[in-house]
């Protein structure tokens, strides 16, 4: 059974105060996420990721279409006990301490009274905030708030976790911890659905990703499948400061640093380049394939005018 099944979900906002104009935030979206997978929802800022998550959470109402979570209609109140949600740049009641906030949320989620205390302590440990449970949230840094946000999303042991930009505001260490945490959730058999505009995170974590841009789905699949359609390149490094003309002719970008040359060229020209180096008696140091990234996918798949739109949005 699919953990999340999105069936033609669509949202058009009307904007403007007097004369309302329709603004299509999400075109009809078709998507299924299997149970137990980490699913990445990718797209530049303003692509419609947050709108999709808000629709699934019942915070905004769809113009048409529907969605099923764990086999239940999204509007079914029973769904809410089974899911966790981390909003983008979360903000919490800042007059509460981290512990009070989590206890309040545990109450609202229906965690039995006797389990609340241990649950809260465990989750504070898990997100790396064991010592600041008694501090008011108004004294928390952005990164700490992000951790609290993750804590509240997993507090009640939901089966599906929705995370909107979970890495934002975190330092490299924090990002690493969150990645590990998501892996752990997967091992516990939970489904993780997270949105990001940072490709590296998705590449490192996701079983599958969906790419959305300007409210429209552009591709779904395993990361490798998506990137295989993009041609790969290799990076070659050799000793010396000489760049043979024939290598330049292969279309390589070359940089001379100290007494080495670094060149990046298309994968299919790799053999020709190595042959040239041998002829010129230059000593090859390394050949490393540069794997096509989602970034390459983005760069190649999104049309130039759309890129502009994506940047300004």
């Amino acid at each position: 059974m699919a953990a999340i099944e999105i069936i033609g979900l669509e949202k058009t906002y009307s904007v403007g105060f007097w004369r309302k104009r329709p603004k299509r935030a999400l075109l009809p979206l078709q998507l299924a996420v299997e149970e137990g997978e980490i699913f990445g929802f990718l797209g530049p800022n303003g692509a419609g990721k947050t709108t999709t998550l808000k629709l699934l959470m019942g915070l905004v109402f769809p113009t048409s279409g529907s969605a099923r979570i764990l086999g239940m209609e999204w509007s079914d109140p029973r769904v809410k006990a089974q899911i966790g949600f981390l909003p983008e740049q979360p903000y919490f009641y800042d007059y509460l301490t981290a512990r009070e906030l989590l206890e309040y949320y545990a109450q609202l989620s229906g965690v039995p009274a006797k389990d609340r205390r241990p649950r809260v302590e465990a989750v504070l440990h898990r997100v790396g905030l064991p010592d600041v449970g008694g501090v008011q949230l108004r004294k928390f840094s952005k990164g700490m708030l992000q951790r609290v946000g993750i804590a509240q999303a997993i507090l009640h042991e939901p089966r599906v976790v929705f995370l909107d930009e979970p890495m934002s505001g975190l330092d490299p260490m924090g990002r690493r911890e969150v990645r590990d945490l998501m892996e752990q959730l997967k091992h516990e058999g939970k489904t993780v659905f997270f949105s990001t505009h940072i490709l590296a995170d998705a590449e490192a974590l996701c079983d599958r990703v969906a790419i959305i841009h300007l409210g429209e789905l552009r591709g779904v699949g395993v990361v490798a499948d998506l990137t295989s359609s993009v041609h790969g390149r290799v990076e070659m490094v050799w000793q010396g400061t000489v760049v043979p003309l024939s290598i330049r002719a292969l279309g390589a970008e070359c940089h001379v640093t100290g007494d080495t040359v670094r060149a990046v060229l298309a994968e299919e020209n790799q053999d020709a380049a190595i042959e040239t180096l041998r002829r010129e008696h230059l000593r090859l140091i390394s050949v490393i394939p540069v794997r096509a990234s989602l970034e390459d996918y983005f760069v190649q798949k999104l049309k130039p005018e759309e890129k502009m739109a994506g940047v300004t949005a």
Partner: peptide, 11 residues
């Protein structure tokens, strides 16, 4: 946006 984390619960 404190409401988001409340309404995504069984409230």
């Amino acid at each position: 946006r404190t409401l988001y984390t409340v309404l995504s619960r069984p409230v």
